[in-house]
């Protein structure tokens, strides 16, 4: 029974990977990864899309991680049990359930139009960060609450201030868990299409962005474009792009797995 359940989980993943590798791997050459697309994206590489996704991931991490972790620390270690805190908690849970396309539209309304950031890396990263925040906050809070209460009490009883206690007695033991949750969330954000659709992604832009106010191409959107919007694109090109995207996401997930394995070996209590 348990074996069957495992099989049900494992089979689709293995199949997807197998098909992707079988049909996409021949396309993965050095030129494919490092060249601009040509001939209306029917020839050439996907370099600008890789770079764009890379910038978006960096931007998302830079925005979502500090804000998310700071929020989690505030809610877990400082906030008193008031009605406001409960309201915030409910809001976070609900935000985690909002469909990503809604984030995309909201990001367009707020960042692109209202704040005049235009369709840019900044708008896209902000939108992706907003979408990632609820999950980062929730997983960070879980990591914080897994640190025994006695650590905090011991630290405070020695005359440490609240912030010193958080910094030296709580965070070091919660950090691996926080990082794991954050990295997994970022990996998901890297593969999202809807949030970047209206906020950053360029249909066809065979050059690299120069500043955070430039548009850029991104792997998920590029994949969507060459599979549905451009006629007569080689199948292997589509599978090759998909393989790169999946490889990137799995690569980021692997980092999370490694961090987790590292914690397990270091766990001291």
């Amino acid at each position: 029974m348990l074996f069957l359940a495992t099989l049900v989980i494992f089979t689709p993943i293995a199949t997807v990977l197998f098909v992707l590798i079988q049909r996409g791997l021949p396309e993965i050459r050095w030129e494919f990864l490092t060249q601009m697309p040509r001939m209306g994206m029917r020839q050439g590489g996907i370099f600008p899309a890789i770079v764009g996704t890379f910038y978006l991931v960096i931007g998302t991490v830079a925005i979502a991680m500090p804000v998310g972790i700071a929020t989690a620390i505030y809610l877990s270690e400082y906030a008193k049990e008031t009605r406001l805190k409960r309201l915030i908690e409910i809001a976070i849970v609900n935000l985690a359930g909002v469909p990503s396309v809604v984030y995309g539209l909201f990001g367009m309304g707020l960042f692109v139009l209202f704040l005049h950031f235009g369709s840019s890396i900044l708008s896209g990263a902000l939108t992706l960060a907003m979408m990632s925040l609820p999950v980062i906050i929730t997983s960070s809070r879980e990591a914080l609450s897994s640190v025994p209460y006695s650590f905090r009490e011991a630290s405070l009883a020695l005359g440490a201030t609240r912030w010193q206690t958080v910094k030296h007695a709580v965070l070091p033991h919660a950090l691996p868990g926080i990082l794991t949750g954050t990295v997994l969330t970022i990996a998901r954000a890297a593969g999202e299409t809807a949030p970047i659709l209206f906020t950053v992604a360029a249909f066809y832009l065979p050059k690299l962005p120069h500043s955070i106010f430039d548009q850029c191409m991104a792997l998920p959107y590029h994949l969507y474009v060459i599979t549905t919007q451009v006629p007569n694109v080689r199948i292997s090109l589509q599978y090759g792009t998909a393989l790169v995207l999946v490889g990137l996401v799995l690569g980021i997930n692997l980092i999370a797995v490694l961090i987790r394995a590292h914690i397990r070996s270091q766990k001291k209590w």
């Binding site: 006695s150 650590f151 009490e153 011991a154 009883a157 005359g159 007695a169 001291k268």
Partner: peptide, 19 residues
């Protein structure tokens, strides 16, 4: 309060060494 807790130390019921 942190200064007070420095002046008045405490040993808890269960040992609470930090890891």
């Amino acid at each position: 309060v942190p200064f007070l807790r420095r002046r008045v130390g405490v040993v808890f019921a269960t040992p609470t060494p930090l890891p």
